[in-house]
Amino acid sequence: MQQPPNHHLAELNIGRIRYEIDDPRMADFTNNLALVNGIAERSAGFIWRYIDESGNATDTRPYADPRIIVNVSVWESVDALERFVWQTVHKRFYGRRTDWFEHFEGPAVALWWVPVGHRPSVAEAVARIEHLKQHGPSDHAFDWRTASAQLWKTARCAPAGQVA
């Protein structure tokens, strides 16, 4: 997807946690959220991320399934988000995602363009991923593959042929 002028990239990623967020088996995940979020915030091209009362986004549960947690952020470009996801310590935590998250059907990431200065709500982000799930990639919501992401192809931790 071509980045329109005067637009940034918004992203939502969701996951179904295996255990309650305060379960000791989630400790390696929760104890490193501040580290990973801090790296994101200091990364070139980072614009904004959604934060709730928890200091991250782990208290926000917009789905009927209370074990689905969300992350929403805005980046200058696909390249900026890719560099953070695949070329920082984030990649190591992503590689361990099965320790903390269950596999579920449907997309776990939605990307879309927002006008510079726009901060998407969680409801807007959820609507984008639902649109992606129901209609497939489009200008309204797309995934890594249709974002023409380059690092995603080589650096992701998913088996060949599987969408990360």
Results as ranks from 00 to 15, higher is better:
Met1Asn: 11
Met1Phe: 13
Gln3Gly: 00
Asn6Phe: 09
His7Asp: 00
His8Cys: 08
Leu9Thr: 06
Ala10Val: 07
Glu11Phe: 02
Leu12Gln: 05
Gly15Arg: 03
Arg18Leu: 04
Glu20Tyr: 05
Ile21Glu: 02
Pro24Gln: 00
Ala27Ser: 15
Asp28Asn: 13
Phe29Pro: 02
Thr30Asn: 04
Asn31Pro: 01
Leu35Tyr: 14
Leu35Glu: 12
Asn37Cys: 11
Ile39Cys: 07
Glu41Pro: 08
Ala44Tyr: 10
Gly45Pro: 08
Phe46Leu: 05
Phe46Trp: 12
Ile47Pro: 11
Ile47Met: 13
Arg49Asn: 14
Tyr50Ala: 03
Asp52Gly: 14
Asp52Trp: 09
Glu53Asn: 14
Thr58Ser: 11
Thr60Leu: 01
Arg61Pro: 07
Pro62His: 04
Pro62Ala: 04
Tyr63Asp: 06
Tyr63Gly: 03
Tyr63Pro: 03
Ala64Lys: 15
Pro66Gln: 04
Pro66Glu: 05
Ile68Met: 12
Val70Phe: 06
Val74Phe: 07
Val74His: 05
Val74Lys: 06
Ser77Trp: 01
Ser77Asp: 04
Ala80Thr: 05
Leu81Phe: 13
Glu82Lys: 01
Arg83Met: 11
Trp86Thr: 05
Trp86Val: 08
Val89Phe: 12
Lys91Glu: 08
Lys91Tyr: 09
Phe93Asn: 08
Arg96Pro: 00
Arg97Pro: 01
Asp99Met: 10
Trp100Val: 01
Glu102Val: 06
Ala108Ser: 12
Val109Thr: 14
Val109Trp: 12
Trp113Glu: 07
Trp113Lys: 10
Val116Pro: 08
Val116Arg: 13
His118Lys: 12
His118Trp: 06
Arg119Met: 09
Pro120Glu: 07
Pro120Lys: 08
Pro120Arg: 06
Ser121Glu: 07
Val122Pro: 08
Val122Met: 09
Glu124Val: 05
Ala127Glu: 14
His131Phe: 13
Lys133Phe: 08
Lys133Met: 04
Lys133Trp: 10
Gln134Phe: 03
His135Trp: 06
His135Gly: 09
Asp143Gln: 02
Arg145Gly: 07
Ala147Asp: 00
Trp152Val: 03
Arg156Cys: 10
Ala160Cys: 03
Val163Ala: 15
Ala164Trp: 11
